[in-house]
């Protein structure tokens, strides 16, 4: 099937966004977004609500469609071609704010569904991999429970394991901790830090500034659909170059 996928050879990076524009009806949500991500890079997107940061990462696996510009992920350009989109989705894992676990399946089934149906993996193999990642997020003993029986933090860790079972090259996190009770934030962030240490390419929309400082290579600040500032975390937090960034940091850090 790989013959059908047009690979765009590039030395630019694993993700390229060039001049991406997006509208919801008449509303201009993303304005001229340019972004290059190298393999192994860890990027944190932050900004006020409605600034387009979630929309940006949702464009990367085509949960949202862009109207102008180019998006190339792992050498595959995202167009209307469903084959291209599916090949990108196989390589890009995503973790949602509200976990979106499948409530009618057990934890193990949640993790084996995609490997079996997308990667055509034998059930036993898929279960082995699932147990491996469930151990990694430290909840193997919950494998035969249903999502409704787990706490929010546990559910989000399962969601991470579920995405990892597809062995993705890139992980997208869409506000993974903002629906959690405060005492559960740490367990999820620790899991994410573990991933970062293994060299996973990560894009993360979050307001956890401590996480950004310790884990990210780059912090991107978005406002009103534009990238306003991007910098290494230390520069970003200690010496913001832009008045909008400063204002935002003041609001969020106090």
């Amino acid at each position: 099937m790989s013959e059908a996928i047009k690979k765009t050879a590039s030395a630019e990076g694993i993700i390229q966004m060039q001049g991406v524009n997006k509208w919801y009806g008449q509303f201009h949500v993303l304005k001229d977004i340019n972004l290059n991500v190298q393999p192994g890079e860890r990027i944190v997107l932050c900004g006020p609500s409605g600034s387009g940061k979630s929309t940006t990462i949702r464009c990367l696996n085509r949960l949202e469609e862009h109207q102008q510009g180019r998006i190339v992920v792992d050498g595959v350009e995202l167009t209307n071609d469903i084959k291209q989109i599916e090949s990108v989705r196989r390589e890009v894992g995503m973790v949602f704010q509200h976990f979106n676990l499948f409530p009618h399946l057990t934890i193990l089934q949640n993790c084996t569904l995609a490997p079996m149906w997308v990667r055509k993996m034998p059930k036993r193999k898929a279960e082995e991999i699932a147990m491996h990642y469930l151990e990694r997020v430290r909840i193997p003993e919950q494998a035969h429970k249903y999502p409704g029986q787990l706490s929010g933090g546990q559910q989000q860790r399962v969601a991470i394991a579920r995405a990892l079972c597809m062995k993705p090259k890139i992980m997208l996190f869409d506000e993974p901790t903002s629906a959690l009770d405060p005492e559960m934030v740490k367990e999820v962030l620790d899991t994410m830090i573990g991933l970062a240490e293994d060299g996973m390419t990560m894009l993360c929309v979050t307001h956890e500034m401590g996480f950004a400082r310790t884990v990210a290579n780059r912090v991107i600040f978005m406002d009103k659909g534009e990238i306003v500032e991007e910098a290494a975390p230390n520069d970003f937090f200690d010496n913001p170059q832009n008045d909008r960034t400063k204002l935002f940091l003041n609001q969020i850090l106090h």
Binding site: N61, L63, E86, R89, R90, V92, G93, M94, F96, N100, L101, F102, L113, A114, W117, V118, R162, A163, M166
Partner: peptide, 10 residues
Amino acid sequence: TEAARSLGLR
């Protein structure tokens, strides 16, 4: 649906 799609399910 979004979760299933993002896992690559057709």
